[in-house]
Write a protein that binds this DNA or RNA. Sequence first.
DNA 1: AATGATAACAACCGCCTGTGT
DNA 2: TACACAGGCGGTTGTTATCAT
Length: 200
Amino acid sequence: MDGKEVQEWRKGPWTVEEDKLLCEYVKVHGEGRWTSVAIGSGLNRTGKSCRLRWVNYLRPGLKRGHFTPQEEGIVIELHALWGNKWSTIARYLPGRTDNEIKNYWRTHFKKMKPKRKAEIIAPKTDNNKTLPPITTSEEHVKELMKPYERDNDLAMLFTEPAAMEDEQSYLSMVYQDFVIVADAVEEEESLWGGLWEVSE
DNA sequence: AATGATAACAACCGCCTGTGT
DNA sequence: TACACAGGCGGTTGTTATCAT
């Protein structure tokens, strides 16, 4: 030994005992300072690993199981808006984690390419100039989410500044497409078979 | 019943960013 | 200002479960 010992962190699936330790530690000390959690809890896990386990699996209020049609619709629409901004999308799906949404998307949509997406995200103007990237406004997202609002669960965490004024007509055009998507979500076959096409 | 394909989920890795010193 | 570190995020991989043949 040269005195420099490299900490061997445990990897792989979490055990019930580890979950219990982590839960108890977070209950007492709160979230955050994950390196401290890793050390103070007695878990031989990295702070990152502890955070991931807590956020994606142990945190109270998480939903498990299949996505509802409403949730599917939200995922589709917000993904069309923001792309792979999973954590951002997750803010609008209470109880769902970015990891879960990411997995869901990958499982259900990876093989599909959106017919409309290119048109929505980068429509061409008459003189063939590409419009600027979407800057999502609070009002626009509110409109977008209306079909899915059921109760206060979907109280939004709007932090974005107002969009550029000259984007409003562009965004309203985009929203029209999203309404079409939302309606189609009710009928999976029409969604999978019509809105998306399977790539080779 | 056996086997291969696919779906679903959990977890790790690497990069980026924010913050403290 | 520069650097180190912790935390967050997105991409990816590995494992298990389920379904079809």
